[in-house]
């Protein structure tokens, strides 16, 4: 059985300087209750790994509004003008990474891999400072794995063992991040009985999940 608690209890051990992965794509599939709890807790100096900084007042955008991040690994900040301004003025270190590369870095982090070789970014600024490896006459960049202290995720339903299913495009980075963090907290719309999700339909195995939080 996975413990179910409130959002505020769930984020209590997140402290200054920690690295956190947060699921979502422009706010869809982001655990809004957990992000709100983190905003209320006010923890600063966080390193956040997430696809995008969403929009002002939406999803991960709230951590940008509240200036709680010191480093952001992401693929897109175009929805939140403040992210761009903070990057320009050096208030926030932003590591911009192609979206597919970011997904693979997280997958590698959770899969025990030393990184991945991708052709994406060869011949662009993305290759700066990275090893280039040629395999069968094609050049790839070595992209290193990413891991985190906490993952804050959103799923549609969990059973009481933490097995997860998602809805439509709200899945995005959530299943990948579930594998790549030491502590995995998942906000779900509903917790159902054991067996209510067919084993064949489980997307994220419950063994990755540490805490469940009821959200919307």
């Amino acid at each position: 059985m996975v413990k179910i608690c409130t959002a505020n209890e769930a984020v209590k051990d997140i402290s200054e300087g920690m690295c956190i992965m947060i699921g979502g794509f422009l706010g869809v599939g982001t655990p809004d209750g957990l992000v709100q709890a983190l905003v209320e807790k006010g923890t600063k100096n966080l390193t956040v790994i997430t696809n995008d900084s969403a929009f002002p007042g939406v999803g991960v955008g709230k951590l940008q509004d509240n200036k709680q991040m010191s480093t952001l690994y992401t693929s897109y900040i175009g929805g939140h003008p403040e992210s761009g301004r903070c990057m320009e003025e050096g208030e926030l270190k932003i590591v911009l990474t192609p979206q597919g590369t970011l997904a693979e870095q997280i997958r590698a982090g959770g899969s025990g891999l030393g990184g991945v070789l991708t052709p994406t970014g060869v011949g662009t600024v993305v290759e700066e400072g990275k090893s280039k490896i040629v395999v069968a006459d094609k050049t790839y960049l070595l992209e290193e794995p990413l891991k985190a202290d906490f993952a804050l995720l959103k799923a549609y339903k969990a059973d009481c063992h933490g097995n997860l299913i998602y809805r439509f495009s709200a899945r995005n980075f959530n299943p990948l991040m579930a594998m790549a963090a030491k502590n995995v907290i998942v906000e779900v719309e509903e917790v159902v009985a054991a067996g209510a999700i067919e084993p064949d339909n489980v997307i994220t195995p419950g063994i990755f999940v540490d805490l469940l939080v009821k959200g919307r």
């Binding site: 992401t74 693929s75 897109y76 175009g78 003008p81 597919g100 590369t101 994406t120 662009t124």
Partner: peptide, 15 residues
């Protein structure tokens, strides 16, 4: 100019 990030564009063009 203000930067937005590449999102998925680099992967799409390569892949």
């Amino acid at each position: 100019k203000r930067i937005s990030g590449m999102g998925g564009a680099m992967d799409l063009v390569v892949g």
